[in-house]
């Protein structure tokens, strides 16, 4: 492959025993990257490339990507940080921009609305993760029994995940209807409660659970898939070894199945945690943050502050705080995940 650019130097030496020392020694110096690029480039272009150092070539390759990354990722991030220290409002571009120090941060952290939103988010994230992990792992464990028709059931279970969240939000609104909703009907069928006596979306106590239920319904299949991959990654002979080692099914589950699937479960938790921390569309569609602002998650709150109230500086400060929090948590989590995976 690199022969064209490689240098072959035949050297003759006077040695009688051909087999023992060889008649010809080939010395191949590795070609530089520039030579390799030139070798596989049309001639006019190759002439320009040939003289460059390896370092220059390397920069030429990654330059565009780095440029793009800087322009659409790093720059906006830094710009947000800058804006968070100003009183800038995006709907009044002509006004003078004043540096106001950490005032935005003080305001964010002392704003009870923000804390309420944080609480709503924490409730939503924690409960969806708990329910989805338990249900997802349980379903995966059942599907992994490989009973007849398990493939069919896998497909059925995966359907909610394939829907658009706007659609899901919309039709769950109908399911939650006190008078005609299927959800209320099913609950009343099993408990005997009057279906029109409770309103999942309209009630202050039930609405936070309404969004947890819908998200769990939609994303448990996703957690199940990842857990299933984890369970399938445990080879049969490990169970056979445990069997001859006289481990009970109970012990096999706790000593083998769960620890060996743990990296996968943790990965699912990470994905779901990140997703649900920034949850927006499904909840907006379903409750619009209501009733009142009971289901107004931080991302919804942030969007209101930034693009309805146009408090750009203030919302930048909120965004920076959220970013630091999520980034820090995710980092700690990934470290733990790596430790588990390394075993």
């Amino acid at each position: 492959m690199f022969v064209r650019a490689g240098v072959r130097t035949p050297t003759h030496n006077n040695c009688d025993n051909r087999a023992a020392c060889g008649v010809m020694t080939e010395v191949r110096t590795d070609p530089t990257i520039a030579e390799r690029v030139a070798a596989s480039t049309p001639e006019p272009l190759a002439r320009r490339v040939r003289g460059l150092s390896d370092r220059a070539i390397a920069w030429a390759f990654i330059g565009p990507t780095v440029g793009l990354l800087l322009a659409i990722n790093i720059f906006p991030l830094l710009w947000t940080v800058y804006l968070s220290f100003t009183n800038y409002r995006a709907n009044r571009p002509n006004e003078e921009i004043l540096w106001i120090g950490t005032r935005n941060y003080e305001r964010v952290l002392t704003d009870p609305d923000i804390w309420a939103a944080m609480q709503a988010t924490a409730h939503f994230v924690v409960w969806t993760i708990v329910l989805q992990t338990v249900l997802g792992f349980g379903l995966a464990w059942l599907i992994d029994r490989k009973f007849r028709g398990s493939a069919f059931w896998t497909t059925i279970i995966l359907i909610p995940m394939m829907l658009s969240s706007a659609v899901v939000g919309n039709f769950w609104k109908f399911l939650y209807q006190p008078q005609i909703g299927l959800f209320n009907y099913v609950v009343s069928f099993f408990t005997g409660i009057d279906p029109s006596s409770f309103d999942m979306i309209g009630s202050v106590t039930l609405a936070p659970w309404a969004i947890v239920i819908v998200d769990t319904w939609m994303w448990t299949p996703y957690v199940m898939l990842i857990c299933l991959a984890g369970l399938r990654s445990i080879p049969d002979y490990i169970y056979e070894a445990a069997e001859v080692d006289r481990a009970s099914p109970w012990r096999q589950f706790w000593s083998i199945t769960l620890p060996m699937a743990l990296p996968f479960i943790m990965l699912a938790v990470l994905f779901r945690g990140i997703e649900n921390f920034k949850m927006f569309d499904l909840v907006v569609q379903l409750t619009g943050g209501g009733p009142g602002s009971i289901t107004e998650l931080t991302s919804i709150n942030l969007k209101r502050e930034a693009f309805e109230k146009w408090r750009t500086g203030y919302s930048s400060a909120l965004a920076v705080i959220l970013f630091v929090a999520v980034f820090g948590l995710a980092n700690i989590y990934v470290k733990a995940l790596n430790r588990v995976k390394q075993r």
Binding site: Y237, I238, A241, A242, D245, R246, S255, M260
Partner: peptide, 20 residues
Amino acid sequence: HPSDRDIAFVFQFYALYPHM
């Protein structure tokens, strides 16, 4: 069941528990 037979099995590829 294998666990009722009081035998030990040494597998060709060892089958050690990787997480222990």
